[in-house]
Design a binder for these strands. Sequence first.
RNA 1: GGAGGUGUAUCGAAGUGGUCAUAACGGGCCUGACUCGAAAUCAGGUAGACCGCAAGGUCUCGUGGGUUCGAAUCCCACCGCCUCCGCCA
Length: 435
Amino acid sequence: MRAEMIDIKLIRDDPEGIKQRYIDKGADFSKEIDRILELDVSRRELIFKTETLKAEQNKVSKQVPQMKKAGEDTAPVFARMKELSDSIKEIDARIKDIDGEYRELMFGLYNLPDPDLKPGGKENNEPLRYFGEPKVFDFEPKNHVDLCTDLGLIDYARGVKLSGNGFWVYRGMGARLEWALLNYFIDTHLADGYELVLVPHMLGYECGLTAGQFPKFKNDVYWLENAEDMRRHFMLPTAETALVSLHRDEILSEDELPRKYISYTPCFRREAGSYRADERGMVRGHQFNKVEMVQYTLPERSDEAFEELVGKAEALVKGLGFHFRTVKLAAGDCSASMARTYDIEIHIPSMNGYKEVSSVSNARDYQARRGSIRFRREATGKTEFVHTLNGSGLATSRIMPAIVEQNQLSDGSIVVPEVLRKYLGNIEVIRKNEK
RNA sequence: GGAGGUGUAUCGAAGUGGUCAUAACGGGCCUGACUCGAAAUCAGGUAGACCGCAAGGUCUCGUGGGUUCGAAUCCCACCGCCUCCGCCA
């Protein structure tokens, strides 16, 4: 069964180096790693002991029928067998304890950051490239909350009425614009050869464990029913959580790779919404819509796949006509499960800065190890872990404010981006009172 | 939700306490022989994980417990699937 998220051999070979890489990521796992090494040693010692005893047990057990047939006295043999059995039970119980602690520590370890990442947090993020120019207005631009409300695109008040703070209702042209965006994303991905997958929105614990959200972040999602029951479900925080478990416990053949998936789902997150001005409106809610891209690749092809995903996210934003930049995240700003992340950030006027609209990450073999997702290498006949990658492509909740703010005219109406018009009955401008 | 059935490799399936887990039997697939080639036929081969430098060893019969010197086999719980009934977008 699954036992390790990070190859234990890496830890055995260079514990200090691994500790440092975690520290670069802003996570000090030194104590855990020391304990893991201790457990690793006693674990192997005990496994050797119990297996030696089991070998004897198996051997003797095979002789019993013959002895009985020959009418020999089995009592002395059974006495020895009882001894063996007791020792085995005792050692196995200890192994079980150790394994439990070992697994818990192992599952708690974050992914290792790629070596080329800058240590530290956000402040060390590195913009790689810029596209286009920030929009300049010859009038005082309004923010997206006011624009959306004035145009009747988003009904914030009734969202709160239905579900509380952090929820909103898309209405009329707002709903249609949302739908148009999703269609634009999906059609683009389909043209690129990705398979569209619609997944359950309620998932089992193992999905979160595989993706790397659990055990550490199990309070960031919404749980259904009894939170102590292992069979409980949670509302998915991203389609990645489902897509990465699609091939859990499977052995894929080499020629099935890469697998390229996209999925549209609402995403549910508890983290949420401060009232700060730059996160007003639909920038951060408890539920938002997203099309997610996921790839399963050969280990040696994951860098290539990563560039492809970044390119795809960029192309979507470009297609909408936005000024954006692509940022290589420093080790500490990458999420816990990811070895490497690039963000695509759009300039949103009311926020005086760049806001993430897509996050593309390479998990390398971290998720594959957690979920036992392997492939058979044809050249060797052996199984190896795949690499998994994911990226938003894209989340509408960040794009919609950008469209509304950047495309606003002085009278408060909104120019529909060219690529979306065919999904909106060729409407060019969204004006007040349009449904 | 109620009742009954069922879960063994790539598939079907045998095994109901030890000498039956690489696992009978059959099919599929791969390799070879025969063939101009194919079909048919014949021969051989067709899990994964863990411990170990290796030799080798251990584990896995849906999952987890229990009984036993010994469990695929007996007991308990849970999960999945099938059939019938109920309910329902």
